[in-house]
Design a protein around this nucleic acid. Structure first.
Length: 372
RNA sequence: GGACAGGUGGGUGAGUGGUUAAAGCCAACAGACUGUAAAUCUGUCACUCCUUGCGAGUUACGAAGGUUCGAAUCCUUCCCUGUCCA
């Protein structure tokens, strides 16, 4: 049974701690969800996610898995969990973000998104209903409705038209989901859009609330806008959302931003940053960022982060990681990703603990706003 | 000893009289990255100076000379490398 249990709320900030109950395990919130777009978190194994990292939920992507290997293939092979040997929860994004990032290849209409595969140029149509069907086939625990993620900046007019389309799509998607997949074991989240316009965000939220969904997402952030705006859009939206349902801000954020979102009442986040940055040489530590490719680490015997308990930090020096990076060794990506995700997950565990013991305001203050 | 081929910036390798301080690639150095078309992408990469400009000067395509208004590019000699023949 899909259910959200609220355990504690910070009186000063509204930050929440809870548990998300799914048929693939319990997820303590606030939570950061590693991104595993193509049925794989790039660079690491499911074993790492289960063991060292102890992640409770990861993301998969409708668009990518639909194109390759194909959702029917995944269904035949026992569903996404079995396919990728991940027994815990999976949230699948609808492909709405690809509508945004693959803009040269798509055409949006009220019906849905007509796009060309980035793999071979084949034309495909995504509708609110078809993306739910794909996610049902994958066996996702939390499905996302098809939405339109608008680039920044957008005019108020364009944002309004787009937002209303997103609402219409959300209605269609949720209705379709309830006809086919509403077994109480899963969830389907609508997504609040409206670009950076408070009135549109409010209108969108209000409309989506009528759907009485299992949870709500805030989308369309981190698309190039100033960071303050992303937080502001979150801040005006969460108070409107039902207290007893989980809130998910999509595609954020940097390590130092995580507590900021939680302070605004967010329960769930995901971001490619820790995994992508790891592969590209940017490592996150309790002391700030380390660009491991820099010459200054050539002879550095210290671990990436002396206070980190991950396998990478327990065993290897910065000099070694830099060497692996420059040498193009595959193991670099593994060690670096392992560390960055551990950092993100540790931050979330610290935040949760602070909320549970009533010390989140202090945590927030200590975390400050500088890069971590 | 002889016959060919060739010597270009940290490496590789284009260029064969003038938009060439010299393509591309690699290395090196720096930067970017936010629901992943990303193990990707961008910039710098001879030295000096300033009014920081598609600025000025210096040095540079094995060495030294020469031809020319002008040479990495043509000529001469020398040095070196590779392959083959004695």
């Amino acid at each position: 049974m899909f259910r959200f249990e609220l355990q504690a709320v910070c009186a000063a900030t509204g930050a929440r701690a809870g548990v998300l109950h799914t048929s693939h395990g319990e997820i303590e919130t606030p939570v950061f969800m590693p991104v595993g777009t193509q049925a794989a978190v790039k660079g690491i194994l499911a074993r790492d996610l289960l063991g060292d990292l102890d992640a409770k939920i990861i993301l998969g992507n409708t668009y990518h898995l639909y194109l390759r290997p194909g959702h029917e293939t995944v269904r035949k092979l026992g569903g996404l969990h079995r396919f990728m040997a991940w027994p815990r929860a999976i949230l699948t994004d609808s492909g709405g973000f690809q509508v945004f990032s693959l803009d040269a290849l798509r055409k949006v209409s009220d019906e849905g998104v007509l796009f060309r595969s980035h793999l071979n140029g084949d034309p495909h149509l995504f509708t609110p209903e078809s993306t739910i069907d794909v996610q049902l086939a994958l066996g996702s625990d939390i499905m996302m409705v098809l939405d339109e993620c608008l680039a920044y900046p957008a005019s108020h007019e364009a944002a309004r038209v787009s937002m209303r389309r997103t609402v219409a799509w959300a209605r269609a998607a949720v209705a379709h989901y309830r006809r086919h997949g509403m077994d109480g074991m899963r969830a389907c989240f609508p997504i609040v859009q409206g670009s950076m316009y408070p009135d549109l965000r409010r209108e969108c939220t209000e409309q989506l609330l009528e759907l009485e969904a299992e949870g709500y997402a805030i989308g369309g952030l981190s698309v190039g806008e100033p960071r303050a705006l992303s937080l502001e859009m979150t801040e005006i939206t969460t108070p409107q959302l039902p207290r007893e349902k989980p809130r998910y801000v999509m595609g954020v954020g940097m390590p130092e931003e995580l507590p900021q979102y939680v302070a605004r009442g967010v329960d769930m986040m995901d971001c490619v940053l820790p995994s992508r940055d790891a592969r590209n040489g940017r490592l996150y530590t309790s002391e700030g960022r380390v660009s491991i490719k820099q010459a200054q680490y050539k002879d550095d015997p210290a671990p990436v982060d002396a206070r980190c308990g991950c396998y990478t930090c327990q065993n290897f020096s910065r000099a070694y990681l830099r060497h692996l990076f420059l040498a193009g060794e595959i193991s670099y990506a593994t060690l670096a990703t392992l560390h960055n995700l551990r950092r993100y997950l540790d931050i979330m565990r610290e935040i949760r603990q602070a909320i549970l013991v009533g010390k989140f305001p202090e945590y927030l203050k200590a975390a400050g706003s500088g890069p971590r």
